[in-house]
Design a protein around this nucleic acid. Structure first.
Lengths: 205, 205, 205, 205
DNA sequence: AATGAATGAGCATTCATTCAT
DNA sequence: TATGAATGAATGCTCATTCAT
């Protein structure tokens, strides 16, 4: 019994390890060469396994990319929720979201590249991604804005979902520019800049 | 002489027509299937010509996509300059930019898809595009913001280039969302929404 | 009438000129790039005419090569007959054949390349060539040897056709080696060397 | 250990078998249709494998032809050296070379076609081949002739390398003619004929 | 589970040839 | 005759996926 469970555990651990290794290798390879120019063999080599082994853990090359997105988004959202929970002030919440967004992606440049570039490489991926984690992420922002409107802190003549998209778009552009600029500057401080405009506007009061 | 010039004109027109047809077909096909999933044969069929004819006008499949970007950006920028010239007020200028951005892309959904999706599908394309028209476009926004800062209309504690990216990112996200939503709403009105936040901020004054 | 014949003459001359130009261009291009790697467009450009014009004079790319062989062999054989006619001594005749062979090909290196290399590039060409001029050429050598045997000058224990092949093969190898050696030495003097062995043998008497 | 080595041997054997099969198929296909007219798919079908498998053993179609040449020349030269070693008399050595040359090629008509036809089908191949095995082969003949000159058996007023080319050229022409004649007669006996002329000359003493 | 040899569908590009002008 | 734009068949090679071991 003990032995059995031990073996089971070991096997499970191994499985998880290989899956992990493939996903990590996928991020590296996709970031370096782009999804369409990456070969499954590249990923296998990077992960230190045989080509065929990839297919014991993933149905296809596509699925590797999907899994990368899904897992990263799930992590991202979970971390977001955890960090946001103790915060009450909507302004502070938005600021935290912006900071997390940029910190997280600047901490893993390769993952950032996959998100900013590969994710957008096909309408199919975009639609799937949108249906998956992105909608949930946008919803968190939207609800924070609604809270701010309810508390009278945020103006009520704006649709929350539109505001959420504006904030997301601005942050997203910061990340894209940072990637293309070859990391010549730190990304996280841009969160404050974005929030200054998003909250206060460009016009002099 | 007249005859000569007439013939020359006709020949030129035919050449232009075929180039045009290929570019238009390219937009349709790339929008529908994505760059990597599009075959040159698809484009040729869509353009009503033989496969080989494509190569009389373009050196490669890549060059077709490049030409689509370059021509669209050149048109876009030229139209922008023309529309902005008579306007003095920086605020009004930004509003015009936002409106043109969304009007133009919502007027040609397939071109919009190519811009929003394919352009971002590879760091290579992004970098080339960034070096080409995008930098110029961002610069127009940036200088308008500088004008507003100089006239005391816009706050001076923000870097103009960062503001430009924020505005661009917000507009870009509007387009992307609109594309993924399958055109369920008109895109141009979003320009006003974006500008309300961009200029006035989300906070109640 | 005069005009008509003039035009006819002119036309004929032009036709001949263009055919000539194409054949000469063919020799240059085939020699430089090989038959399979030469494009009809290369030949047309070299000849200073349009691609399509080639097909007014030749049915196909193959036919250009054929015509090059046939005309060169016809010239070669005709010149050979003319030079051999006044000679009676079979030994002197063979010597003249050997000299003509090497002189002719070393005088036109490009033609030599086409003969030595392209002609042998396909069994099809070889067979056609063999059936055409080559057999006739070999026959001239063979009959000269027969004459020498009849006059008691050449040994009679050898089949004339075999001797002819031996002589031809030796000369042919001289040409091939000369081509591959990038013309570092004059080819015609090799005729004497070949004949010394062919007539006298390698053994000390 | 035994088991391991056995397995290793089996695996190696399979690999070798497939490489062998491709080379053999290459000889057959190239002989039948010529290098440029042969498709890789033809070779694969002839070898009983899938198209892509060819590329597990050879980098390109070119490399298949190269391998055919190199291996055949290496075999040829090795066999030649082995057979010549016990022979002292230069005359006898040359006779053996001539016999081996014709026997070997007449024993594998398809290989002979590839050697006589394809090898000469491009200056590129000829040059590579010349640099590879051919120069070595010619050198063996040349040195045998030098030995004969040193022993006073062969005339000294001839350059050995020229004599070597003459002999090679004569033998080569025998092979080419035999191929084009569709094997109507046995090739090896021609070795004696060639040697009679090469050693004794055509002239009556 | 793991391997990696084998598979074979897929595709950008070339170029001999045609034909409307 | 001459042109050269247009054609479309043809092919070497790649690589995601499978499967016997």
């Amino acid at each position: 019994m003990a032995r059995g469970s031990k073996e089971g555990g070991a096997t499970k651990a191994v499985v998880t390890d290989k899956r992990e290794a493939i996903l990590r290798a996928g991020v590296r390879v996709f970031a370096a060469k782009g999804f369409f120019n990456s070969k499954v063999a590249d990923i296998a080599r990077e992960a230190g396994i045989a080509d065929g082994t990839v297919y014991l853990y993933f149905k296809s090359k596509d699925e590797i990319l999907h899994s990368i997105f899904n897992r990263a988004m799930a992590d991202f959202i979970e971390e977001g929720r955890r960090e946001l929970e103790p915060i009450d002030d909507p302004t502070e919440k938005l600021m935290t979201i912006a900071e997390l967004h940029l910190e997280r992606l600047s901490a893993d440049r390769e993952l950032a590249i996959v998100f900013q570039v590969e994710l957008r490489g096909s309408t199919k991926f975009m639609q799937e991604f949108s249906a998956a984690g992105f909608a949930e992420y946008l919803d968190i922002i939207k609800r924070t804005i609604e809270e701010g409107q309810e508390s009278g802190m945020f103006r009520k003549d704006m649709k929350p979902v539109v505001c959420a998209k504006i904030l997301y778009g601005a942050l997203d552009e910061m990340v894209t520019n940072w990637i293309l600029s070859a990391n010549k500057y730190p990304l996280p401080p841009m969160a404050g800049e974005v929030m200054k405009i998003f909250l206060g506007g460009l016009l002099v009061k």
